[in-house]
Design a protein around this nucleic acid. Sequence first.
DNA 1: TCTTGACTGATACGACCGTATGAATTAGAT
DNA 2: ATCTAATTCATACGGTCGTATCAGTCAAGA
Lengths: 204, 204
Amino acid sequence: MNHDSTPRRLLTAARRIFAERGYEGASIRLITTRAKANLGAVTYHFGSKERLYNAVLSEFMVPLGQTVVERATAPEPATKRIGTVIEAYYDQFARFPDFPALVIHELALGRRLPPPIKDTLDRVQPALFKLIQDGQAEGSVRAGPPVPIIMSILSQPFYFAMVRRLVGQVVGPDFEKPEFRAMLIQHAIEFVWRGLAPEAREVA
Amino acid sequence: MNHDSTPRRLLTAARRIFAERGYEGASIRLITTRAKANLGAVTYHFGSKERLYNAVLSEFMVPLGQTVVERATAPEPATKRIGTVIEAYYDQFARFPDFPALVIHELALGRRLPPPIKDTLDRVQPALFKLIQDGQAEGSVRAGPPVPIIMSILSQPFYFAMVRRLVGQVVGPDFEKPEFRAMLIQHAIEFVWRGLAPEAREVA
DNA sequence: TCTTGACTGATACGACCGTATGAATTAGAT
DNA sequence: ATCTAATTCATACGGTCGTATCAGTCAAGA
């Protein structure tokens, strides 16, 4: 007795399998088997493998984009907002551990970005630009072009998501503990804060 | 009359195609066609698709690992070494622009790491640990567990490699200029230095 | 009860996959 | 010029792929 509808089960199975094996490596046969659905179910409910893939990506990218934009434009000091944005990425990556691999795939691959990823990027990018410029206007973020600054910020959650399995092997069982995860996030935020802080007045 | 041997041409074509489409998405037929070789050439010269893949990875990972270990253990202050290690990643990623996508693939994917990547990681990891501990002993790197520190360092070149195409679109033609690339590397190094620096010398 | 539309299920199709095979060709040593 | 080993080449095989087809099932409205 399964309470989940077939499309729901397909999405869940597809998410994991796409993440584990990439788009090409995932087969409809494997997805439908794991979802306890018939081979034809993907075609029936989603139209094609590619549409299922985009549906899977949307489930992750849409709320991620929304949260990040909200936090990036919140009525708070820029430094604070940068911290909450970083947290948003870590949290969303932790909530759906299958997804980062998917997104990273697509970013690293040369091919054209799938619409759900492209759309979210287009929404998030201007908000982050504005956030950095606000910080520079406030004097809480050091001067300089925004592009490398944004890259240095996003690098923290994305690289963590990329190597989380390896890190888990190195760190051992502690890796699963919430305290350890919280420590990592705190480290990332403070690392970014220090990296972006304006020169101390020692210079003057 | 082609000066390059068939195995050489296969490696070059395979590198690009694996990077563009992932392991599963790349077909031997496409690789051999692009390399102007016969369909059987991969089997003959490398034994199998997987062995070709590992050969492609080795071409990149072995010199990368060697350079990083050299620079991480050089007889210089830890801070300096951290900078040269970061540069090593950027340089190697720039020299073989196809490769990062391959490595990122494998790191993000759940599956077991291919031997060339695993071996290099096993060589590099202790050298980086030692480097951070040296820095902490010197007083030039702030205290704290080495794992998050190493992650924050490596995140810079890896994330850059991951999003370089996107950044190129945002930045425009300047992106190709060597000055721009040098600026990005300099930013990354300084960002890391500031992020890892001990508290200001208020102590003194 | 009958009808209708949504869904499931088994099967089929053509395309492409990695690899194997064995003949044809080439290059080098004698 | 002849022999030999290395390489190239065309072709074939079994398997898996995404998708299409169409008959079967089932629940809800008339």
